[in-house]
């Protein structure tokens, strides 16, 4: 960059220089192309999680648990030690790992079909025991990987492939607010709900993950970060439309913010 340049005559080559770099992909993500659908919030959630790991300098001490669902492929993309778990059992596996290696940072990365359905028991009991782990819970209100079936978190009236006329709460029950539920347990030190659809929301969500890891370092108990996300393939919408729909319909039922801190 020469001193004689002013902002109007600057060429792209003068801007694209290492000293002007303000953002690049974190080294804690692998070079593999993400297999998620275009516009899926999983990618952003992966990135902010790995940015926190990089900024805290704990890449070598972090162990992630990826269970079943779209999140199962996380070990291909997160450049930390990963372990796969049976469907819903990630908090149980994380409990074992953390108890054997208490100095490690252990997190689970689970979707709503995994954490809120088949894994409800494991989740609630890990929360109740106050295991010193972090749960990252991606809530998109649907089973994404298997073809958009109704999940426990599906909104009332929401159409899915197994509730084609909308979720009938009389027959199928009400959507489950997991984060509010576990916030009542004394073993949980931090429960928050975030989103990754706008730049401001992404920054806030990253901060929440940072807080969760910090609390794990201080051995305060279990921290749960719910990220309300889109599933544009499951919802059958374009990514931007899906984000708008999420703001209009998901946020009134799943309000963002810290539930317990």
């Amino acid at each position: 960059m020469s001193a004689s340049h002013d902002s109007d005559t600057l060429l792209l080559e003068d801007i694209i220089r290492p000293e002007n770099l303000v953002f690049e992909k974190t080294a804690c993500l692998t070079d593999n192309t993400l297999s998620y659908c275009p516009g899926c919030g999983h990618g952003t959630a992966h990135r902010i999680l790995m940015e926190v790991v990089e900024e805290m300098g704990i890449q070598g001490q972090t162990i992630g648990i990826a269970p079943v669902g779209c999140s199962v492929l996380a070990y291909d993309f997160m450049n930390v030690d990963m372990q796969q778990a049976a469907h819903g059992r990630a908090p149980a596996v994380a409990t074992g790992i953390k108890r054997v290696m208490p100095e490690k940072y252990v997190f689970t990365y689970q979707g709503d079909g995994d954490l809120a359905a088949i894994g409800t028991a494991e989740t609630i009991h890990a929360c109740n025991r106050g295991e010193n782990i972090t749960i990252i819970f991606i809530n998109n209100g649907i089973y994404g990987m298997t073809g958009g079936q109704m999940a426990p978190t599906t909104l009332a009236g929401m159409r899915t492939s197994t509730s084609p006329f909308g979720r009938d709460t009389e027959m199928m029950g009400h959507p489950l607010r997991i984060t509010e539920m576990v916030a009542t347990l004394p073993g949980v030190c931090f429960a928050t709900r975030q989103a990754v659809h706008t730049p401001a929301a992404v920054r806030k969500a990253k901060k929440a993950i940072q807080t969760a890891f910090e609390l794990q370092r201080q051995r305060k108990g279990l921290s749960l970060v719910e990220i309300v996300s889109n599933c544009n393939s499951g919802w059958k919408m374009m990514p931007r439309k899906a984000n708008d729909w999420m703001e209009e319909n998901m946020f009134p039922f799943y309000p963002l913010g810290d539930i317990k801190k």
């Binding site: 801007i15 002007n20 999983h42 952003t44 990754v196 659809h197």
Partner: peptide
């Protein structure tokens, strides 16, 4: 910030 695939690298020149 919002790119799910982390394919955007950003540079900023400040006077």
């Amino acid at each position: 910030m919002v790119c799910p695939d982390s394919v955007i690298t950003v540079y900023r020149w400040k006077p």
